[in-house]
């Protein structure tokens, strides 16, 4: 599974962090950072994170 966040669209809401904290974090500058190739066991959480992104900036491939 590959996760792509369109950082031109992302506005650092951090809703994804609540759904999949293992994959998405807000860093000390308030910007989103994420793991691009998370473990398959986290798929449900990542799908949920993509659903709840207010800007719909998260794409999952594979």
């Amino acid at each position: 599974m590959k996760v792509i966040v369109d950082m031109d669209v992302c506005k650092d809401h951090g809703q994804c962090v609540f759904s999949a904290p293992e994959v998405f974090q807000i860093n000390e500058n308030g910007r989103l950072v994420y793991e691009a190739e998370p473990d398959e066991s986290l798929r449900d959480a990542v799908e949920e994170a993509a659903d709840v992104c207010p800007l719909q900036a998260i794409t999952i491939e594979g």
Binding site: D12, G14, V17, F18, I26, E28, G30
Partner: peptide, 9 residues
Amino acid sequence: MASAAGRYR
């Protein structure tokens, strides 16, 4: 206060 959101939530 974005960094505080998770704590309150």
